[in-house]
């Protein structure tokens, strides 16, 4: 790994279309982005194709990125998630069935039979309550809205929202340690 450079500096040089900065970006973030994409499309080969699109999009659109609105990664992960979700919807026009399929999965988890392979959390986030983790992952990695997620889990929207909030606050504390 190369040395860390500040996000500000990175963004500045990315906007100047510096090749080395884009390489730095790839080396540091392609794994995280591919992780998100893979969670959504569940197909490694396809995921890599999508990551190609995503990265080229980031390169083309970096001029639009406005640092005052948030961190670079949040912006990139939105591009990744949207591209992946679009692809999934295009590929199989059975998005609804997909939700049904997940329905079962999630019910199982909600009754505390977590499938740990899905959440390779390296022990750290085990501290996070499973029902909360399920929510975060559904929304963050699978692109469900909070309303949809609450619907699927058959919990009130307010409960879903407060669980998500608690979960993120927990994560915040866990990562600080």
């Amino acid at each position: 790994m190369t040395t860390q450079i500040s996000e500000e500096e990175l963004v500045r040089t990315l906007k100047q279309n510096s090749q080395s900065s884009f390489e730095y970006l790839y080396d540091h973030y392609s794994g995280s982005l591919l992780g998100v994409v893979t969670k959504i499309v569940k197909d490694t080969e396809k995921s890599e194709d999508i990551l190609q699109d995503v990265f080229v999009k980031i390169w083309k659109k970096i001029g639009d990125y406005d640092p005052s609105k948030g961190r670079l990664f949040t912006w990139m992960v939105n591009i990744a998630r949207n591209t992946a979700i679009d692809q999934v919807r295009k590929d199989k026009n059975i998005w609804l069935e997909d939700i049904d399929e997940l329905h079962g999965q999630v019910d199982k988890k909600a009754s505390f039979q977590p499938e740990m392979s899905l959440f390779d959390l390296k022990g750290l986030t085990d501290k996070l309550k499973t029902d909360r983790k399920v929510l975060i992952d559904m929304v963050y990695f699978q692109g469900y809205t909070q309303e949809e997620a609450a619907d699927i889990l058959k919990i009130p929207l307010g409960t879903a929202k407060s669980r998500i909030r608690t979960a993120l606050q927990d994560l915040k504390t866990i990562f600080k340690i």
Binding site: G31, S32, L34, L121
Partner: peptide, 18 residues
Amino acid sequence: TTLEGTMETYAKMHEVKP
């Protein structure tokens, strides 16, 4: 910003090497 950093770390933990 803290929350964004949190999710960045969370995503990093789920990374898949290309």
